[in-house]
Simulated assay, not measured.
Amino acid sequence: MAFELSVNLEYGFTEAGDKIEDRIAAAAAAGFRKVELFLLKGRDLDAIKAALDANGVELISTVADYVTQLVDPATHEGFCEVFREAASAAKFLGCSNVVVTSGRGVPWLKRPVQLSIFADALRKILPIAEELDVTILLESANTRHDHPGVLCSTTHDSVVVADMLDSPRVKVLYDLYHSVVEGEDPDEALAAAMHHVVHVQIADAPGRGEPGSGKIDWPGALARFERLGYKGTIGLELQPTKPSVEAFGYIRGLCA
């Protein structure tokens, strides 16, 4: 079960300090060649790019925005500008994957209607994705613990929206932690999503710590990814309960 790993540097290698460029260097020194970040807005992109280049590290995903409630059509035009800025920053850093989340849902519209409005928002940013040559990654996040009220809380939600768009520019990021916490059966959820999944992220549950800190069967999880034909990178989007190098040791051993 050989998989390449990437590290989310919002949580990983924080021992190196607050500067992302120092965390990039620490990740590289530990043998990681791929990293992920959340928002790029307001960050020193020149310094980050220099650190990526100097350490031979690739940024493979970033996030457009967390707060825009895309079930509200009034937000769509403004989100186009938010997405353009985020995608332009990502491309400057050599990254072609931009995560888009739905934002909060509303109680007065049925779910299919809300998902359709979310899909309308994505249709508006598709020309920007084409122009800048980036992929939109749809990510569902659990509403039971981490993101109360979010519209896309199940893997199925993201798949439904990706099916509506039916575009090679719109794919799905499957997060095993969010899937488990939301109460999904990972075998069923991932199998039904595989026609869109191009990236996987993991953390243990409960707690969102490193693999081995919770109750997920990690040899079984990796076997599932392999059985279902996933061949991409596995992102470590987790909050280590011990120093990063030590925390990542177990999953690195399984993926070697």
Rank of each mutant, 00 (worst) to 15 (best):
L5N: 03
T101A: 08
N142G: 11
H199K: 12
L70I: 09
K215T: 15
A28N: 09
G31Y: 07
M1C: 13
F79Q: 07
F92E: 12
H199T: 13
E210A: 06
T75H: 11
T155I: 00
H145Q: 13
A16I: 11
L173K: 02
A86H: 04
V197F: 05
F225S: 03
P211C: 10
E77V: 00
T154V: 15
A223C: 11
L59W: 05
D204Q: 09
G56M: 08
E139I: 04
I20N: 04
A89V: 03
S167Q: 14
E226N: 06
P112T: 04
P127T: 10
I234E: 01
L39E: 02
P240K: 02
A30S: 09
S116P: 14
E77C: 00
L138H: 01
E226I: 05
G249K: 10
E15N: 01
I117V: 10
V67E: 15
D157V: 10
G149L: 01
L52K: 06
L132D: 07
L45P: 02
A16K: 08
I24M: 09
A203S: 04
E139C: 01
K34C: 12
S61L: 13
A121T: 10
P107I: 08
K19L: 15
Y66K: 06
R104W: 10
A50R: 08
C95D: 09
E10L: 13
V159L: 06
E77Q: 02
P206S: 06
V161L: 12
K91I: 04
E4W: 08
V71D: 04
G212T: 01
Y250E: 10
